[in-house]
Structure formats: structure tokens, C-alpha cells
């Protein structure tokens, strides 16, 4: 049996949950992530800007400049990768 208090508490919780979800729904888990180009290893990208591969997990080269992966927001430009020729470069928020 459900008493009156529980019903009120349930209704309040559901209303609060609906408020918390509005807006948050569309972003879900990737909300605190940003697309970072040029830092993913071959086959480990989340997607790509154009051309070089179809999408998730399909990049053929390490650190493909057109392939991106989700990284924690604010960390992309701080990410340094070492290319095959030994040169270093940082990740960028736009395709290179």
C-alpha cells in the first residue's frame, strides 16, 4: 500500500527528475567532451571530418589530422602527440 506522503514524495521526485533531464537529455554522456582532431590512433577515432574514413574506428593512420575523438573538455589543445617522423604537435578543435 502506498500512503499519501509517499505519493507526494514520488510526484515531487518525478517532477524534479523531469526538470533535471530537460536539456540534459540531448547531450547525455558526451556533454563534457569536445571533438579533438589529430590525436587518435589508427582505428580508435570516434569519427572524421571528411574523406579519409567513414566513421568510428575506421581511421587508417595514427594521429590522422582529419579524424577526431571525444576528449575531456579543455584537454584537446593540451594534448601532444609524437608523429612517426618524430615531430610533435598538439590536438586541435578543427580538422587540420
Amino acid at each position: 500500500m502506498i500512503n499519501r506522503t509517499t505519493t507526494v514524495a514520488l510526484a515531487a521526485a518525478v517532477a524534479a527528475a523531469a526538470l533535471m533531464s530537460s536539456g540534459a537529455n540531448a547531450q547525455t554522456a558526451n556533454a563534457d567532451k569536445e571533438k579533438c582532431y589529430g590525436v587518435s590512433m589508427a582505428g580508435k577515432n570516434d569519427c572524421a571530418a571528411t574523406g579519409s574514413n567513414s566513421c568510428a574506428g575506421t581511421s587508417k593512420a595514427d594521429y590522422d589530422a582529419k579524424a577526431w575523438k571525444y576528449v575531456a573538455k579543455g584537454s584537446c589543445a593540451k594534448m601532444e602527440v609524437t608523429l612517426k617522423d618524430g615531430k610533435k604537435r598538439m590536438g586541435t578543435l578543427a580538422p587540420m
Partner: peptide
């Protein structure tokens, strides 16, 4: 919800529902 709040002091139904529905 009763069972969860009895078993866990910090249980908050609103946050739990928002997370579960939000994640599909």
C-alpha cells in the same frame, strides 16, 4: 524506491530517475 531508500541513506529518487531516463 522504498527499498532503495531503506537500503541506502543517500538515495535520491529524482537524481536516479533523471540519470536512468537521461541515459535511455
Amino acid at each position: 524506491a522504498d527499498a532503495a531508500s531503506r537500503a541506502h541513506d543517500g538515495f535520491d529518487l529524482a537524481t536516479a530517475l533523471a540519470t536512468l531516463f537521461g541515459a535511455g
